[in-house]
């Protein structure tokens, strides 16, 4: 691989909860505009990896760079780092006491210091773009799961992040609501957004990813272009995982 601009570099990352080591030396480079999908069984460390990148979990060992800046060094301003990385959670985590618009403008206004009118304008623009305009004054409880998750993605986008992390964003959705969310993510990929996506949607991963990483017991067992991973996996664990997925009718 030639030298190119890296949005994210993860080097030898380890993370354990008490005695349970979840990540055991993960190394991953993500180029700008690249879409990387993380696949693997539940508990393989996908979510933990994303939470570590966003500094929501302290790491035990290893280093992470965002652009040129090491974000795992001591004394880093974590809030400033998080402003540059968007994350979308499996359970949406919208703020139930705020309208959709306020959910989206909270970060830009309070963390980025935008004025109310600037933040509102930015939020309305994004809502418009993703077909959610008429929901801006509703409370999250009044939206369908798919709409809520789209709002959560818009909330992350409103921070104008360098990188977006998506943590199994369709796992909590009814099947008929998954497509609208996946389509939104496709659109982001089409616009060159750098993304790391943990997902169970194999055909989606195959479709959207520039690179697929198979996580197994806290390490990246195999990584490569989606065609290679899904049609000719070399690692026996990858093969077994994909066989199970196919047997379950999920691909």
């Amino acid at each position: 691989m030639t030298e190119m601009a890296h949005a994210l570099r993860v080097q030898n990352l380890s993370k354990s909860f008490n005695d349970n080591s979840v990540l055991r030396g993960i190394s991953l480079d993500v180029a700008t505009h690249e879409v990387v999908c993380l696949i693997g069984a539940s508990g393989s460390g996908k979510s933990t990896l994303l939470r570590c990148i966003n500094l929501l979990e302290p790491v035990n060992a290893g280093r992470i760079w965002l652009g040129d800046e090491e974000i795992t060094r001591a004394g880093i301003d974590e809030d400033r780092v998080r402003q540059r990385i968007g994350i979308v959670f499996q359970a949406f985590n919208l703020f139930p006491h705020m309208t959709v618009l306020r959910n989206i403008t909270l970060g830009p206004r309070e963390a980025l210091g935008l004025s109310r009118s600037e933040a509102d304008e930015r939020a309305r623009g994004l809502l418009e773009r993703f077909g959610l305009s008429e929901k801006s004054d509703d409370y999250p409880d009044r939206l369908s799961g798919g709409q809520q998750q789209r709002v959560a993605i818009v909330r992350a986008l409103a921070m104008d992040p360098e990188l977006i992390l998506l943590d199994e964003v369709t796992s909590a959705l009814d099947p008929e609501l998954i497509a609208e969310v996946l389509n939104l993510i496709r659109e982001l990929a089409g616009r060159g957004m750098t993304m790391v996506i943990a997902t169970h949607e194999m055909s989606f991963a195959r479709d959207i990813a520039d690179r697929v990483c198979f996580l197994d017991e806290g390490v990246i067992a195999e990584a490569g272009p989606p065609d290679q991973i899904f049609t000719a996996p070399s690692h026996p664990r990858t093969q077994r995982f994909l066989q199970r997925i196919i047997a379950a009718g999920r691909m």
Binding site: N54, L56, D79, R80, V81, R82, Q83, R84, I85, G86, I87, F89, A91, N93, L94, F95, L106, G107, E110, A111, L112, R155, A156, M159
Partner: peptide, 21 residues
């Protein structure tokens, strides 16, 4: 705590997360 996680992930400080969320 997922509410706090969401607030912090937007770059809000601990106090801002407490105050707004």
């Amino acid at each position: 705590q997922s509410q706090t996680a969401a607030a912090r992930s937007l770059g809000l400080s601990r106090w801002q997360s407490m105050r707004f969320v």
